[in-house]
């Protein structure tokens, strides 16, 4: 892992060079912060805090055309996936989420759409110096300066950014930007370690997940699920805005003689998600759906892939309109054990 230093005076030049590569970065639009394309000539200001919509939306778009078809034509028309993309300012938790989700998209079948996009995308991360209120990444195996899933990790050192190269893809970018960068001195690395340590100390919430994956199957019929889910609105906020939720639905849209098959995000919090054709629903109430959401992240995914499918970004807790708080749920699970 090589470490380079980018003086902030050269920031706009750095962005200028990247913006030719289909660059996306967090941008504030009204009340929401989400990833937006950076046009040539535009600059990017990275600040603290995470986006409302996680960057998964770029690799796994909310609606994605799988192919198009029309009557009288035997061939299907596949959308070409060949554009490279650079995401700048990705938080370590969101990058880690992409690494976790890849487990699924490589599982029994290689998902060509997701994996192709992943291959074409370079992730330039930004370590968190000021974690947010509901951040709890260290509880679930992450950290504010984790490099998992990233190609390059940047750390804001005040006057400059420290760039640590993680992968070959990252190396290629650093190589290209060579003129703007300088070799990082040892005290820069030291400073970065201090910042990361400081960030970890600033994290206020959290829980030790030890024992939760084993406890969940035992608590299947526990009254705690009724209690937790009673205020739930059954909306899709916690799942749609979760960086590790990947459920999708596939639909055909037809108009006249042409149409397309597309896939779109789906949410286990919707009644429709498990509804059978017969009308029977094996998860008839919000109790079963809430239980599934927690079990999936903290039990089923662990059984299958050996890792908790939660990166501790805190979005579900922060954005839930009725204060259904994941950390609080986990505490209740531990208490009920």
């Amino acid at each position: 892992m090589s470490a380079m230093l980018l003086n902030k005076e050269k920031w706009s030049e750095f962005i200028g060079k990247l913006s030719g590569k289909n660059l996306w970065a967090p941008a504030v639009q009204g009340e929401v912060k989400k990833y937006a394309p950076v046009a040539e000539g535009e600059t990017v200001e990275l600040d603290e805090g995470n986006t409302t919509v996680p960057p998964k939306a770029l690799l796994f778009p909310q609606t994605e055309t799988l192919y198009r078809f029309s009557t009288g034509k035997e061939e299907l028309e596949f959308p070409g996936l060949d554009e490279e993309m650079v995401l700048l300012g990705v938080r370590p938790c969101d990058a880690r989420a992409m690494a976790l989700v890849e487990n699924l998209f490589r599982w029994d079948f290689d998902d060509p759409y997701y994996l192709k996009r992943r291959e074409l995308t370079t992730l330039i991360g930004l370590a968190c110096n000021e974690p947010e209120l509901n951040c709890f990444c260290p509880s679930v195996g992450g950290s504010p300066d984790s490099t998992e899933g990233l190609d390059i990790l940047m750390t804001d050192l005040g006057e400059s950014y420290l760039l640590e190269t993680v992968t070959e893809k990252g190396k290629a970018i650093v190589e290209e930007m060579k003129d703007l960068l300088e070799e990082a001195p040892a005290d820069a690395l030291e400073q970065k370690e201090q910042l990361a340590k400081g960030a970890r100390e600033k994290i206020r919430r959290g829980i030790d997940p030890e024992g939760i994956p084993e406890a969940l199957p035992q608590l299947w019929e526990d009254p705690l699920w009724q209690r937790i889910s009673a205020p739930c609105l059954g909306c899709g906020i916690c799942t749609y805005l979760c960086p590790t939720c990947y459920c999708f639905d596939i639909q055909d849209e037809i108009e006249g003689s042409a149409g397309r098959r597309c896939r779109m995000w789906d949410s286990c919090m919707f009644a429709e998600y498990t509804k059978h054709t017969s009308g029977h629903n094996p998860r008839p109430t919000r109790r079963e759906r809430t239980r599934n959401r927690i079990n999936h992240k903290y039990s089923y995914f662990v059984d299958k892939f050996g890792v908790i499918a939660c990166v501790g970004c805190g979005r579900c807790s922060t954005l839930c309109p009725v204060n259904i708080d994941l950390i609080d749920i986990l505490r209740q699970v531990k208490a009920a054990q």
Partner: peptide, 9 residues
């Protein structure tokens, strides 16, 4: 993002 929270709330 069609989370339908407006409808459900």
């Amino acid at each position: 993002i069609r989370c339908y929270s407006c409808r459900n709330a």
